[in-house]
């Protein structure tokens, strides 16, 4: 191992401070170097590329702010950003509501609750691409079980093409995402709830408070940090959605479901325009940083007050 040599310079408990420092640096160095090379440097390169007309094949030309000017005029980018925002709002709300419901159900020790938790978390571990192919099949008009059941139940007649209208296409993706990720939301909220001291509830019970009241006055306020965490994770994750749209809707119907990452991919690897792709990336990065900062501030302020 690369580190064994230096590790032999065994630091005494009160050994020289400098030696101790260097040793710590050695421990973190491999990870830091990798993160620098595979993450920090690419971020910098992306920023540089966004000022170039840069083809995938390598030809490039400095064009200043042209890519950003183009971004400003690109209606598809702004439409896509609007759609991604709408999707994020819906997914976040759905995850919070369903996640809360499930967390309330499984937070207590109760016979069989472990099995329930396992069932709700299970979809979290499969990939989004895999889940999307599963959904594609379940919803297929000819061979899928969902249209078949709907027809059998007499709810619809004739063909069911979920991905042919915007509301149904979006709904299908949202249901997929909730199914696939709500287990995680549930776990986080559940842990947060379990961390709330029972004393509060006991006192409230003595005062004759009802469960709904306790939820509103005790659970919700004390869960704020957890909710903030869930919000940040969900918002970032939703703004970066790609797999499910790439596979399920392919941007349709009528280009109404194109997430921003799809445009970044398209500009770079279908149009071979890496410069413009990079400019969109920087735009997305800035938006996400701002959103995260706002959420952190809100959560912190509320905590202070």
């Amino acid at each position: 191992m690369a580190l064994s040599l230096s590790a032999r310079t065994r630091p005494r408990r009160r050994g020289p401070q400098a030696r101790r420092q260097r040793l710590g640096l050695l421990f973190v160095l491999p990870a830091v170097a990798l993160v620098l090379g595979i993450f920090v440097v690419p971020v910098v390169v992306t920023a540089v590329m966004s000022f170039y007309d840069w083809s995938l094949l390598g030809q490039r030309r400095f064009i200043g702010l042209d890519n950003y000017r183009r971004l400003g005029e690109d209606t598809q980018f702004w439409q896509s950003l609007g759609f991604t925002t709408l999707y994020t709002v819906i997914v976040t709300a759905a995850l919070l509501v369903v996640g809360f419901g499930l967390a309330l159900a499984v937070r207590h020790r109760r016979r069989g609750v472990g099995v329930l938790r396992t069932a709700f978390v299970m979809p979290v571990v499969i990939g989004f691409a895999t889940a999307a192919y599963l959904t594609l099949w379940l919803l297929d008009d000819r061979i899928g079980i969902v249209p078949d059941l709907l027809r059998r139940a007499g709810l619809v007649e004739g063909s069911v093409s979920v991905f042919s209208t915007f509301p149904t296409a979006l709904a299908a993706v949202v249901v997929l995402v909730v199914w696939k990720t709500v287990g995680l939301t549930m776990l986080l909220l559940m842990t947060g709830m379990q961390a709330i001291s029972q004393d509060f509830y006991e006192a409230a019970q003595v005062d004759g408070a009802r469960p709904a009241r306790m939820f509103r006055s005790i659970t919700l306020p004390l869960l704020r940090p957890t909710i903030g965490l869930v919000l940040i994770l969900t918002v970032i994750g939703s703004y970066l959605a790609f797999d499910q749209f790439f596979i399920l809707t392919q941007g349709g119907p009528d280009n109404s479901t194109i997430p921003v990452v799809y445009l970044i991919y398209r500009a770079g690897f279908i149009d071979f325009d890496l410069g413009y792709s990079a400019a969109m990336s920087i735009g997305l990065m800035v938006i996400l940083l701002i959103l995260t900062a706002i959420q952190l501030l809100v959560v912190r302020n509320r905590e202070d007050s």
Partner: peptide, 9 residues
């Protein structure tokens, strides 16, 4: 890995 990472940078 460390060597590669350094080379990367």
């Amino acid at each position: 890995l460390a060597a590669v990472a350094a080379a990367l940078v």
